[in-house]
């Protein structure tokens, strides 16, 4: 497999590992909560996730107009890009305002929530594109059942305590439900459906990009759940482990985009 992965993809992967590792190392040795550490964490995250968005966009543009893969990757690029915009808004509040407080709900949430629509539709279209090759019935059913089961679990662990807290505003309650619900319905569910579909390819090259995307999406969804819990407990600070979950998750989505370009190089296979 390695022989078919391009040098460009390996450089992207190495750069992402170095960037995320570098930010994590800095945050480990620099005092948490300091303005410098907040800036490094926020701006580092924007650069990592922005790079992933550019990777997805360049993959989308490599396909001709009207091709399903162009639409899928364009939607995914839009989703990742909106998350990066959310991070820019988040960083603005943290770094450029006097209080340094990020409103919740606030402008970043507009971008963060918008990404689900694009990303989710992109993933659903990607899964549906395989219907000519393999049956999608079982993957869709299993993904649906798992999503509902996870939803019930999340409701008990994350959502119910927030709803029961009388001090939490209505807007906060709505967002507290919206994030995990969107994670399940528009990210995890479709990603699971894709994984269950492409496993029929037995490691075939067409599945490579989607393994990376599914892994990335899972990391993003887990990070979202952790972030919501930390915000509810009022213990979230920039630079916490959850930030690396987002960075690594979107970096993996970008890796999937790079692999999608590699998959196109038919004549490299011997």
């Amino acid at each position: 497999m390695m022989a078919s992965v391009s040098r460009r993809t390996l450089i992207y992967a190495a750069a992402m590992v170095v960037a995320i590792g570098g930010i994590a190392a800095f945050m480990t040795f620099w005092p948490t909560g300091d303005s410098v550490s907040t800036a490094v964490s926020d701006i580092g995250g924007i650069l990592v996730i922005g790079t992933a968005a550019i990777a997805a966009l360049s993959t989308a543009l490599s396909f001709d107009r009207g091709e399903p893969l162009r639409t899928q990757w364009m939607l995914i690029a839009g989703g990742v890009g909106l998350f990066a915009l959310g991070d820019i808004a988040f960083a603005y509040y943290e770094l450029a305002t006097k209080s340094g407080e990020v409103p919740f709900p606030g402008l970043p949430d507009v971008f963060y929530l918008s990404q689900y629509a694009l990303f989710g539709v992109g993933l659903i279209l990607a899964a549906m594109a395989y219907r000519g090759l393999v049956s999608l019935r079982n993957p869709v059913i299993v993904a649906g059942v798992v999503s509902v089961a996870l939803g019930i679990g999340l409701f008990g662990v994350f959502i119910q305590p927030v709803l029961a807290d009388a001090e939490v505003s209505l807007a906060e309650r709505v967002l507290t439900i919206a994030y995990p619900a969107a994670d399940l319905v528009l990210l995890l569910g479709p990603a699971l459906a894709i994984v269950l579909t492409i496993r029929h390819l037995q490691g075939g090259r067409l599945g490579w990009p989607w393994w990376a995307v599914a892994a990335g999406v899972t990391l993003v969804a887990v990070s979202d759940a952790a972030f919501n819990w930390l915000v509810f407990k009022e213990t979230y600070q920039s630079g916490m482990l959850v930030d690396y979950g987002w960075m690594a998750g979107y970096a993996l989505v970008g890796l999937g985009a790079m692999l999608a370009l590699d998959v196109r190089r038919v004549f490299d296979i011997t």
Binding site: F63, E67, L69, Y130, L133, L206, V263, V266
Partner: peptide, 19 residues
């Protein structure tokens, strides 16, 4: 071409068919 184009892209399918 019908089943692979949506998941592999037109140019990839063209190359595969050439092979």
């Amino acid at each position: 071409r019908r089943v692979l184009s949506p998941v592999a892209g037109r140019s990839t399918v063209d190359d595969l068919l050439t092979r």
